[in-house]
Design a protein around this nucleic acid. Structure first.
Length: 420
DNA sequence: TCTGGGGTCCTAGGACCC
DNA sequence: TCTGGGGTCCTAGGACCC
C-alpha cells in the first residue's frame, strides 16, 4: 500500500470513502499531478543499489542541484542549492549527471497516461500537469479515484511515484499536491478552501518568491489569511498592480483559470503556444576578460539559438545579450532590428555590436548569453528584398549547415572560429 | 569552486504619435 | 502658449517559476 502522510484536514486516501459522493466530487474536478523528485527518481529507478542512498542530480562544476531524492533532502539538500553546499550537507550522497533524453522520454509517457484520462492536460513542465477531469468522471469515477488510478498506473509503468492535488481551481490544486508530497493525494473541497489556504505562509502563493515574501512579512502579512484581509489597493501599492491583484485572488482561491490543453515546449517536446523568445547562455569554467574567448562563445551560443529557431520555423527582431560579471552583477543589452531574422550571422553581428557597446576593458566575465525575442512564424516574416543583399548568402549557408547537422550531428559543421 | 539554464511577465521611463 | 492625456514601441532591470 502506498504511504499516506499524516497531514490533517483535507488529506484523503482510498481507505477514506466518506468524501467520495458524486455531488462533492463534481465540484473538485481539477487535478495537479506532480512527480516526486522527478529527475532523481528517473535517474535511480533502475538502480536498486541507490534505493537507500542519498542521491543528487546535477551539481557539476559551478553547478546547482537539479533534484535530490528524499533521503538527500533529510540532510537539508534542496533543488537550486549550490553543489558546494549540497556536498557539505551530505558528503556521502551519490551525484548523478542529468540525462535529459531519458527525462523527456519518461515525461512523454507520463503525459500520455494523463491524456488517456482526459484530453484537457496542461503540462507545466516535464514533471507536472493540470488535468480537468470533469468529462471523465462518468467513465472513471470520482476525481479522487482518478487520482489514485493515475498514481498506480505511473508507478507500475514508469517505476516512479507522484503526488496529486484535487480542487475546484488550479491554484488550490497546485498547493494541495505540494501538501500531498511525497506519494500522496490531498483533496480540498470548496467549503474547506479558506481553512486550507489561510494558515499557509504567503511564500506558498504562486508568484511570491524570496523578495516578495520578505516584503510582505515586513508589512506584517505573514499568512495567506493576512493577505486575504488586506484591501486590494494597499496590496497593490506594496507589490504592484498585477501581483497585488493576483495575490488577492489567490488568497481567496477564487481564480477561475481554465485549463488549456498543451504540452511543455521545454526540451523540444513541442506543441502548445509558440515560444516568445529563445536563448542560450553559459557560465564559463573560469571567469575571463579575453574578448576573443567571449566573442567565440557568443558565436557558439548564437548558432545554437538560431539553429533551434530554424528548426521551429520562427524568426525574431530583437537580439539581447546577457553579461554576468565575476561579482554576479548581471546586465542585459538589447537591440531591435528593422526585420526579423533567423540568420546566424545577422544575430551574431547584433550580439557583437551590443557587446562592444559595453566598452569593457578588463572586466572579469562569468557568463554570457544570447536571446532572440519577439518571435514570429517565419511565414509571417516578409524580408525587404534589397538588390545584391549579402544576407541571402548567409541564409543559404545556414540551410547547408542545418542539412549537414541533421545528417551528421551538431559536431559536424560549425563556424571556423569554433574549431579547436 | 558560493550562486545553472530555460523561460515568462511586470514595471518604469523616454520617445513618439495623435 | 506655460502645458493634457492616451497609446505604442523600445530598453533595462528585476522577480519569479521549473
Amino acid at each position: 500500500m502506498r504511504r499516506l502522510g499524516e497531514v490533517p484536514t483535507a488529506r484523503q486516501s482510498t481507505a477514506d470513502p466518506d468524501h467520495r459522493g458524486f455531488v462533492l466530487n463534481t465540484t473538485t474536478p481539477i487535478l495537479h499531478v506532480d512527480m516526486d523528485a522527478f529527475y532523481a527518481s528517473v535517474a535511480t529507478r533502475e538502480r536498486p543499489d541507490l534505493r537507500d542512498v542519498p542521491v543528487i542530480v546535477g551539481g557539476a562544476y559551478r553547478g546547482v542541484v537539479l533534484s535530490a531524492n528524499y533521503l538527500a533532502r533529510q540532510y537539508g539538500v534542496r533543488s537550486a542549492m549550490t553543489a558546494t553546499r549540497a556536498r557539505r550537507l551530505c558528503p556521502h550522497a551519490v551525484v548523478i549527471a542529468p540525462d535529459y533524453d531519458t527525462f523527456g522520454t519518461v515525461s512523454t509517457a507520463v503525459m500520455e497516461t494523463f491524456r488517456r484520462v482526459t484530453p484537457l492536460v496542461e503540462a507545466l513542465s516535464l514533471d507536472e500537469a493540470f488535468l480537468d477531469v470533469r468529462g471523465s468522471m462518468r467513465r472513471l469515477g470520482s476525481p479522487l479515484q482518478i487520482a489514485e488510478h493515475l498514481r498506480a498506473t505511473i508507478h507500475d509503468e514508469q517505476g516512479i511515484t507522484c503526488s496529486v492535488g484535487v480542487a475546484a481551481s488550479v491554484s488550490v490544486a497546485k498547493l494541495a499536491s505540494k501538501r500531498a508530497k511525497p506519494d500522496g493525494v490531498v483533496v480540498v473541497p470548496p467549503d474547506e478552501v479558506t481553512s486550507f489556504l489561510h494558515p499557509l505562509d504567503v511564500g506558498e502563493l504562486y508568484g511570491v518568491g524570496e523578495k516578495t515574501q520578505a516584503m510582505l512579512h515586513r508589512l506584517g502579512l505573514v499568512r495567506v489569511g493576512d493577505v486575504a484581509h488586506t484591501p486590494l489597493r494597499t496590496l497593490q501599492r506594496a507589490v504592484g498592480d498585477a501581483l497585488g491583484r493576483q495575490l488577492h485572488d489567490l488568497s481567496w482561491g477564487t481564480d477561475r483559470r481554465e485549463i488549456v490543453a498543451r504540452t511543455a515546449t521545454a526540451f523540444g517536446l513541442g506543441g502548445g503556444d509558440p515560444d516568445k523568445s529563445m536563448g542560450a547562455q553559459e557560465t564559463f569554467g573560469r571567469d575571463t576578460d579575453d574578448r576573443a574567448v567571449i566573442l567565440r562563445e557568443l558565436l557558439r551560443l548564437t548558432a545554437k539559438v538560431t539553429g533551434r529557431m530554424r528548426t521551429a520555423g520562427v524568426a525574431g527582431r530583437t537580439v539581447a545579450i546577457t553579461v554576468r560579471f565575476a561579482d554576479f552583477t548581471t546586465i542585459t543589452r538589447s537591440r531591435t532590428l528593422p526585420e526579423a531574422t533567423d540568420v546566424t550571422q545577422e544575430v551574431y553581428r547584433a550580439a557583437t555590436a551590443l557587446y562592444d557597446g559595453l566598452g569593457l576593458q578588463r572586466a572579469r566575465i562569468r557568463l554570457v548569453g544570447v536571446r532572440v525575442e519577439g518571435l514570429l512564424p517565419r511565414a509571417r516574416v516578409h524580408r525587404q528584398l534589397v538588390l545584391g543583399e549579402r544576407e541571402h548568402g548567409w541564409a543559404e549557408a545556414d540551410r547547408a549547415v542545418d542539412r549537414a547537422t541533421r545528417r551528421f550531428g551538431s559536431a559536424a559543421v560549425r563556424p571556423a572560429s569554433l574549431i579547436d
